[in-house]
Amino acid sequence: MTSDLGFWTLQALNALQLSMLLFLLSIGLTVIFGLMHFVNLAHGSLYAVGAYAGAAAAAVGGFWMGLFVAPVAVAGMGVLLYSGLIKRMRRSGPMAQVLVTFGLIFVLLDLTRIFWGDLPLAIEKPGFLSGRVALLGIEYPAYRLFVIALGLAIFTGLAWVLGQTQVGAMIRAGVDNDAMAACLGINVERLFFTVFCVGCALAGLAGVVAAPLLSVTPDMGLQILIPTLIVIVIGGLGSLKGAIAGSLIYGFVQTFGAVLAPQLASVLIYALLAAVLVIRPMGLFPAKG
């Protein structure tokens, strides 16, 4: 293996980029779970819908239009899902929720096929992000740096909201004990609704951000679902810390696994997940003790 420092810097940035993409996706899923104890298997499908909505908007008004439209559209979809399905599923057990959202995967997959066809779509990167930037002695694609920066910005923003603001305090109270939070006069129902929609918006954002790197295909939601679930289960459901830790672990294991032990790369992460669950059945940083 090469001893070139630039090579390892490059790989570390690759790992960071993958981590941030997964973070955008997993944070919504994990906070929704922490607050509402609701597992949304269709979260990956929302990411796909985000990518498609972004691609459709970008075809008209360019990348930035897509970047704006995708989260809004998916949040709008979140409103529909919440009032139509989620609200009524709140008191059902995890299995009922898993199944409803499993059904939703099929529905959303076929709906994207009906609306946008089977052929892959694409979003072009905006001009100034399509080049490469020289840093740390290497040249790295500007768009990937943008993804890393966006991920870090969202992480910082959420950490601030959750840690420093009143809404954050309400959410933390809700995660700890929603019945008690309701007794303290917090409108838990509205809180749930808001958090669900923000989670959906973040999934949509992840979709449109991933689109210029990957391709927009109907099954992209299914492909990303398992990695996202692994991230939040390793990290521990319900916590911001868990989501970022899980994302970083996944990103670095996957990237350096591919470099150092390519034969094991695809089994490695599952083995890690199994190991985490054996040693800490609730993940590394669960929301509740």
Partner: peptide, 21 residues
């Protein structure tokens, strides 16, 4: 045996992990 300590969604995820492995 490995998953016996996990419950609810964690059990679902743990079995999913073994299956995918």
């Amino acid at each position: 045996a490995v998953c016996a300590r996990s419950h609810g969604i964690y059990f679902i995820m743990a079995t999913l992990a073994f299956g995918q492995m």
